[in-house]
Design a protein around this nucleic acid. Structure first.
Lengths: 262, 262
DNA sequence: TCCTCTAGCTTGGAC
DNA sequence: GTCCAAGGTAGAGGA
């Protein structure tokens, strides 16, 4: 960990230059180097990721304390000219036990898989991460037309909860395809924390593919997210894809309430 | 800049926890905090970006040296429990003169705009960053059918240079749309360093839009990149989008050669 | 402000 | 290895 007035040049995926200034140079145990200024973001001004090799060449030239060359095996080079070293400390931190995370897309997926009534009446989970040739669909649900009508009164779903138009799901008269499972329809759900146009494109690709399968079609799509950009919503609705805004806290609360009940 | 055995909890967009271990804590001038371990990448294990507020509450409890709370106005909280402080230094670095970069997508765009013969015979630059309702198209070119045929022998283009099939561009008999500029066609070019499926979707959206303009259509598409993933290539070709692999060094070399000639 | 797109993205997982 | 998808993506730039 060095604080020094320095000049930095990176040459690799692009070329970048830092004029002389006082900066913090972090050399990690694996030889990787970070060049930080006293502001900006968590991203260094310049860096070299491991695996890489740091070589120090002391320089006799006036006004230059030393020169570091940090290279990796892809031919990228970070050259640091140390003009004046203000501080140089070294500590052994040991290996870190690591970070545990909670609350990302996966958690939303699990919750929604347990709360399929949010998707409309009569939908039952087929599986999460339903595999296709172009990747897994987050959630695939199935609805038997007969079941849906019968089941609706018994579902015990609070009328206010579902955000999409249930009646539309139930009442739509979709012709049965030949070869398809009689009376069955499917729903592919794409889940995002923030849904942008990309999410709509992704779901569209899945729907195109799934609707080629006579045992699945007709397959509808729902885009479920904590937030949906207006453009994504417009594109989705233009393609007949439903939008469902998820309230993470509410879903988690219901999940906890369920746990308390059983 | 503190080195300490510490425990860290982040609560905000997700929840994350770091068990007790010795780590480097960087507090920048703007109050932002980075928690680094002695390895991994340039990304901290945990952090809080500016603008945020750091408050330190000294704790009398045995085995706890202090507690930091770093909050931002979005309600995110980073809580750091300092169990043992091994080092605590402070330096004023001043403001950084900043980083200069060169060689990213913008540079590829400029070079290709000067070397439109790589796109096929007869294409002339209309403009870079051609504005549309859904964002700027990297490069838009124009080809007068008459000009293209007349101009071909005079272009002085080395036969080996263009990577796409020129004859295809010139010889295709595309019917003139009513209301379109007579004899003109356009080419929309999407440039990427690495082209994935996303790039194809992006270009497809542009093409859909541009082809609604009677003064532009017919508009073709070319995906130009230093590398193109196989899936992107397949999807692009399936949609009639040409793929062009760019050699950055070669393009830069030709650029330099041009400079030497004039 | 929101939304878009780029990034030396990084990183993890599947194949 | 290559490719895809997610990220507390961050950050710049334009409407």
């Amino acid at each position: 960990m060095v604080i020094a007035r320095c000049e930095v040049d990176y040459s690799g995926r692009l070329d970048a230059h830092l004029p002389p200034a006082t900066r913090l140079l972090l050399v990690k145990a694996d030889g990787s180097v970070l060049v930080h200024s006293d502001g900006g973001s968590y991203k260094p001004l310049n860096w070299m990721s491991p695996p890489c090799l740091l070589t120090e060449t002391p320089v006799a030239t006036d006004g230059i304390a030393a020169e570091w060359r940090v290279e990796n095996n892809a031919g990228e080079l970070l050259r640091i000219t140390l003009l004046e070293i203000l501080s140089d400390t070294s500590v052994d931190l040991g290996t870190d036990p690591g970070l545990t995370k909670d609350g990302v897309e996966l958690h939303l997926q699990r919750l929604l898989a347990e709360q399929t009534d949010r998707l409309g009446l009569g939908w039952r989970l087929v599986r999460r991460e339903y595999p296709t040739a172009i990747g897994p669909v987050d959630i695939l649900c199935r609805q038997s037309a007969a079941l849906a009508v019968d089941a609706a009164p018994d579902e015990g779903v609070p009328a206010a909860r579902p955000t999409v138009d249930d009646l539309d799901h139930v009442a739509d008269a979709v012709p049965e395809p030949e070869g398809g499972a009689p009376g069955a329809r499917h729903l592919a759900v794409e889940i995002k924390r923030r849904a942008t146009i990309d999410a709509v494109e992704q779901l569209t690709r899945y729907l195109d593919l799934l609707n080629r399968d006579p045992f699945l079609r007709p397959v509808r799509g729902t885009l479920a997210a904590q937030s949906i950009t207006p453009q994504a919503r417009t594109l989705a609705e233009d393609r007949g894809i439903r939008c469902l805004v998820l309230d993470y806290d509410e879903m988690r609360g219901i999940d906890n309430a369920d746990e308390r009940l059983f």
